[in-house]
Computed example of a mutant assay.
Amino acid sequence: MLEIIKQLALDVAENGADFCIGMVTAESPLTIRLEEGLELTEEFLVLTENVLEWEETGTIRINGGDWNSYRMKQDRRLRTGEAVALLRAADGQQYLVLGRVRKEG
């Protein structure tokens, strides 16, 4: 996945990219509908950690005491009805899902 993000960054630097807003229409398989009506399926989406489920493990020491192990799970998966910000690569084949957006006001 890191290689895909690097390639997207290079595409943006060389050719520019389009910022767009989409709406999650299905969770599994993930489908996002852009404002202009185009529906994107998982094969066209590159997801950041902001919109994934992930787990972290490590050790922590509190107030100078003993080291303790911890395991933290974050479920940030996108849900139906959420609005998301995306960057479209210049070739239009890949979309980087940056994260959730809220239209307030």
Rank of each mutant, 00 (worst) to 15 (best):
S69L: 10
T31R: 15
T59L: 04
L38F: 11
L52F: 04
L87F: 10
T48P: 05
R61Y: 03
Q93L: 04
L2K: 13
G65N: 07
G81W: 11
I4G: 07
R77M: 05
R102L: 15
Y70V: 09
G81K: 10
D18H: 11
L10K: 05
A90M: 06
G65W: 04
T80H: 04
R76Y: 13
R76T: 08
L86P: 01
E82K: 06
L10I: 07
R33W: 06
L87Y: 11
R33P: 02
E35V: 12
A89V: 05
T80D: 02
A26V: 03
T31S: 14
R71M: 09
Q7E: 11
V97F: 05
M23G: 05
E43F: 01
L45E: 09
T25I: 15
N50A: 14
E42G: 02
I60L: 12
G37I: 08
E53I: 09
A17Y: 10
E43W: 01
N63W: 05
R102P: 01
Q94P: 05
L34A: 08
R61L: 00
R88P: 00
Q74M: 14
F44R: 10
I21P: 01
C20W: 02
Q74R: 13
E35F: 06
L40G: 12
W67H: 11
G92E: 05
L78A: 05
G65R: 04
L47M: 11
A83K: 15
Y70L: 13
E42L: 03
V24D: 07
G81R: 13
L96C: 09
Y95G: 06
K6G: 01
N15V: 00
F19L: 14
L96G: 00
T41W: 10
T31N: 11
A90W: 04
R79L: 15
N68G: 10
I4K: 11
D18R: 14
E53H: 13
T57P: 04
G37R: 09
M72K: 14
R33C: 13
S28I: 09
R76G: 06
N50W: 06
M72S: 08
E49K: 11
R100K: 13
W54I: 03
I60A: 12
G22A: 05
V12Y: 11
E56H: 08
L38K: 15
E55G: 03
E39W: 07
L45M: 08
L98H: 03
D11N: 09
L98A: 07
E49N: 11
T80F: 07
L34G: 02
S69H: 13
M72F: 07
T48W: 08
R102T: 11
V84D: 03
E55L: 10
K103W: 15
R88Q: 05
P29L: 12
V101A: 07
D91M: 03
I32S: 02
V84Y: 01
A26Q: 15
A90I: 06
